[in-house]
Design a protein around this nucleic acid. Structure first.
Lengths: 135, 135
DNA sequence: GCTTTTGTTATAGTTTTTCTATAACAAACA
DNA sequence: TGTTTGTTATAGAAAAACTATAACAAAAGC
């Protein structure tokens, strides 16, 4: 998996890394059971510090997306096929989504256009097709 | 307009304030031409520093949502009825939306459920109803 | 004109966050 | 046994966040 970080961007490096991995899980490039590079390996590949990678992994762990094994490295434990999250998680997500959707509407994007764009992005995620092995 | 800020939250105060104002514009509580409190007044009301309010206003100004008049205070210049933004703005928004949508899918929310939730939020914005005065 | 209000800008200080650098330890594997 | 890895600790530098004061010019009301 190739990850590109914007060192000069406003978004913290660990947040960017977390976002890229989340996107990789969403679009199927990473599935439950897949292993991620070790923190030292990924840090070396990206040219950043080990603790920055560690912080990104820790975020993903607290979100319930990965598990940090001793020697195996990080392992994906939850993906689009793992089943729905608790209502609490979904509701908290919706609250954050509300702010982003409000921005689009406030800037003049018609709600129908917003919905169209959202739909198009969602169709890019393989979870949209119901044909998936249960394993 | 009543604004509540979470002082102990992880989101910066100026960002929270900016978000609440964007939401107020999106759901019609603020319209083009409406005046916002002066920075000093709002800072006093919220019990925060003037510069923190100033930073929020500056964000909104750079987003093209408000205008900062000398004595009139801040004025809303763009809302849901002002017309669509440039494609560039819409595309940049979609890129950020992609990350948030990926998170929902990665955590197991079915794309159909995500679309449903988005639809429901959008319907809460009055721009959804096409019957609006052109003024 | 004069006064007051307001946005703007500047300086400065504290706290928190971000990122890096080193190091040590225990668990896990070959 | 020896090596790798996650984990934890400490420490430092840089940037961000927030506050506090102050001064200035533009704009409005008097």
């Amino acid at each position: 998996m190739i990850v590109v970080l914007d060192v000069d961007g406003e978004v913290p490096l660990y947040q960017q890394l977390r976002d890229r991995i989340v996107e990789a899980i969403a679009d199927g490039r990473l599935s439950a059971g897949d292993a991620l590079p070790t923190t030292r390996q990924l840090a070396a590949d990206l040219g950043i510090n080990m603790h920055t990678v560690n912080k990104a992994y820790d975020l993903l762990r607290r979100e319930g997306l990965i598990r940090l094994a001793r020697r195996t490295g990080a392992v994906v434990i939850r993906d689009a096929s793992t089943g729905p999250p608790p209502d609490e998680v979904a509701d908290e997500w919706e609250e954050r989504a509300r702010t982003l959707l409000a921005e689009a509407v406030a800037k003049g994007l018609a709600p129908a256009d917003v919905a169209r764009r959202v739909q198009r992005v969602l169709e890019g995620f393989p979870a949209g097709s119901p044909i998936r092995p249960t394993a």
